[in-house]
């Protein structure tokens, strides 16, 4: 029984961290119409930043600054924001394909750099030697994981409330105005490029926050954690949940992560041994079909964009 509960806590922690990432992406895509093809780079910058800044000294690569945990996490978020700021500055004035391609490129280059630059972040071996905050006081057991989950949940709720207020604020209305009709927004005397940059950087900082928490949870990050797969998963969560709707984003995160975990488990359990190599491929086909299928048949997602509470049920985390 305790095994099941501890697994559920583990699952819910990961899903909540991913939900924070989906919220960040929702600000970019759902509210502002910015296509981020490199979600994983900003997520990764947060994870690597946090671990390098907050970890113990490591032979052969950057680290050992031993910053207090909140500062380390903040550093990771700033790293993600800085990267977004540079990419955004270069592309947000151009037609939207440029942002899509440049962000995709950032993710490729980021993963490539982390994999190769051993002096920077340990290369393929990744960053180790990070001690989770308060570990000495709480130990490594179930209690720690439970408390960590609650902390993540609180952060998720805080991010949700922050974004809800942001979206309802005049700034949020401007973002939607830019998304719907750039010229009209420009005629109000607002610079669409600057608005988009603000939204893009803010969203990326939230992605960085999720990455930092993810790195903290595993006390380890390596290039394997920042493969393009994660970008697809986070998108699928947003599209299925409902772009533009923060509750939908959270709902989508739990639903897709649940489906992904369950399908992975089922395939590894029931697929014949010789086919095990291909279960990954099958999962990708499934997630690709989910993305395409949703766009074709229910592009608004399960919880469509509305500022009113949807009838379809509450997202699990708010219950």
């Amino acid at each position: 029984m305790i095994g099941v509960i501890s697994y559920l806590v583990f699952f819910a922690t990961t899903a909540s961290i991913l939900a924070i990432a989906v919220l960040g992406l929702n600000l970019q895509w759902g509210n502002t119409g910015l296509f981020n093809g490199g979600v994983v780079a900003f997520f990764g910058a947060g994870a690597y930043g946090t671990l390098i800044l907050g970890g113990a000294a490591q032979a052969g690569h950057l680290g050992g600054y031993g910053l207090a945990y909140p500062l380390a996490l903040l550093g990771g978020m700033i790293a993600a924001g800085l990267m977004a700021w540079i990419v955004g500055l270069l592309t947000l004035r151009l037609r939207h394909d440029y942002l899509a391609i440049a962000t995709f490129g950032v993710a490729v280059a980021f993963e490539n750099l982390m994999r190769n630059a051993e002096w920077l972040a340990g290369g393929a071996k990744g960053v180790r030697g990070f001690e989770r905050p308060l570990r000495s006081a709480l130990g490594d057991g179930f209690i720690y994981n439970l408390l960590f989950f609650l902390a993540v949940l609180l952060i998720l709720i805080a991010v949700y409330l922050f974004l809800e207020r942001l979206v309802a604020s005049p700034f949020g209305r401007l973002l939607r105005a830019v998304r719907e009709d750039e010229e009209a927004a420009a005629s109000l005397g607002k610079s669409p490029a600057r608005l988009r940059l603000t939204a893009f950087v803010t969203g990326s900082v939230i992605l960085g926050l999720a990455g930092g928490l993810y790195g903290t949870f595993y006390a380890f990050v390596s290039p394997q954690d920042i493969l393009p797969t994660l970008t697809f998963q986070i998108w699928a969560m947003l599209i299925v949940g409902g772009a533009g709707n923060n509750r939908g984003a959270i709902f989508g995160a739990f639903l897709i992560w649940g489906a992904w975990t369950a399908s992975g488990w089922a395939l590894s359990r029931f697929a014949p041994v010789e086919a095990q190599l291909y279960t990954g491929s099958l999962q990708f086909v499934l997630i690709g079909c989910v993305i395409v299928g949703m766009l074709m048949w229910r592009p608004q997602g399960l919880l469509p964009e509305r500022l009113v509470v949807s009838q379809r049920g509450k997202p699990p985390s708010v219950q």
Binding site: I239, S281, V285, G288
Partner: peptide, 25 residues
């Protein structure tokens, strides 16, 4: 035809995953 031009990028990403992995299978 749904008028969701921006969503085309998403659709293409999804299609890329599907095609690539079906070839692998």
């Amino acid at each position: 035809e749904r008028g969701a031009e921006l969503s085309m990028v998403f659709a293409s990403f999804g299609m890329a995953l599907v095609i690539r992995n079906i070839i692998g299978l």
